[in-house]
Simulated scan of single mutants.
Amino acid sequence: MSSKSEMLRKAFNSPGLIKVAGAHDGLSAKLAEENGFDAIWASGLGISAVQTVPDASILTMTEFLDAAVIMNESCNLPVIADCDSGYGNIHNVTRMVNKYEAAGIAGVCIEDKVYPKLNSFDDRKQILVSTEEFCAKIRAAKLAQKSEAFVVIARVEALIAKLGQEEAYARGKAYAQAGADAILIHSKEKTPDEIIEFIQQWDLDTPIVVVPTKYPNISMNELEELGVKASIYANQALRATYRAIDDTFKSIISNQSTVPIEENISTVDDIFRIQSVPEMKQLENTIYKEYVKQ
């Protein structure tokens, strides 16, 4: 049986767009699998949000890793872990890769911002490290991995930091040459125009990854036609979860009962199914029947 890293590597080497679902826990990862996604993005924003802390390197690497492991164990899809800016310098990056790979995570993504970082959609000034410093982190990551299949994605934040296309391209090219397996180009513009401009000038074989959070009007087919290799739907599940829970609790309090929401929420049997309770019962029946026969 191939490892999940091999699954992810094969997906990057095969035709078609890799559809990646942002998840924040085991339940969201499992539902992503059931609905046809190809991989899981262990979202730093999502993991931070469920602990109600800012996505600003507040949680430790161990806390992010523990959350990614839960997602990995909850589904059969490869997990790409959002590892912020690598949790420090090259030595932190080395330890990060050792820990994540040993835990069975298929790949990691690190970004070229300072540590601690700010979420890309935070309106405060985004500060990037030098190209040379980030290339060193990429080289450290690739040197640390044990399996050739493990994937290291370099995230370019130059467009987020308003540094322009020339800087974004120069950084992306340098990161690819440093050994990154894919380049994630990020934008917070409301149209995909600057992402399309970047892609059209990209002349390296290193695959491109995008996160169309702010420009949702571009379809998967359009991204694939542009040559994008993977598209990450990073926080839609988190935002949907927030809205659903908030609306549910508001309804219960305002209506003094759960009657108005019962038709719109899952049944307990739905929850039992995703928890594998039927399989648990089947195992118990099998074990005890065999014991009685003896």
Rank of each mutant, 00 (worst) to 15 (best):
D247A: 15
A81T: 05
A178C: 07
E6Q: 15
L283S: 14
V211M: 10
T258L: 14
D247H: 15
S231K: 03
N285M: 12
Q294C: 13
P54Y: 08
S147H: 14
S5R: 03
A103Y: 03
G26P: 02
F64W: 10
A141H: 05
K214V: 10
N255E: 15
V268H: 12
V69Q: 02
V156T: 07
H91Y: 14
C83P: 06
Y288C: 11
I160P: 02
D25E: 13
F12C: 08
A29F: 05
A144I: 04
Q126S: 07
E63Y: 00
E225S: 12
H186Q: 11
A170E: 13
F64P: 02
E101A: 04
D55N: 04
S3A: 10
F249N: 10
K125G: 08
L59Y: 03
S254L: 12
A11P: 00
F150A: 07
L8P: 01
G44H: 00
S231D: 02
S43R: 06
A234N: 00
R239C: 03
V79T: 09
I58W: 09
C135H: 06
F12I: 00
P260E: 13
I252S: 07
A230Y: 00
L17Y: 02
F12H: 02
G104H: 02
I271C: 11
S257T: 15
N255T: 13
S120I: 07
D25Q: 09
I110V: 03
Q126T: 04
S120C: 12
I47C: 02
M96I: 10
K214F: 14
N264T: 09
N72H: 06
K289Y: 11
I245E: 12
K214T: 14
E166R: 09
L128D: 03
I196A: 06
I261L: 10
T60S: 15
T248G: 15
E284R: 13
R171V: 10
R9V: 05
L77A: 08
L118A: 09
K293S: 14
N221G: 12
D193Q: 14
L143M: 14
A32M: 04
I232F: 04
R124M: 10
K19I: 07
N92Y: 01
A144N: 06
A140P: 02
R171P: 05
E189G: 14
M7Y: 11
S231Q: 00
M96N: 01
R139E: 15
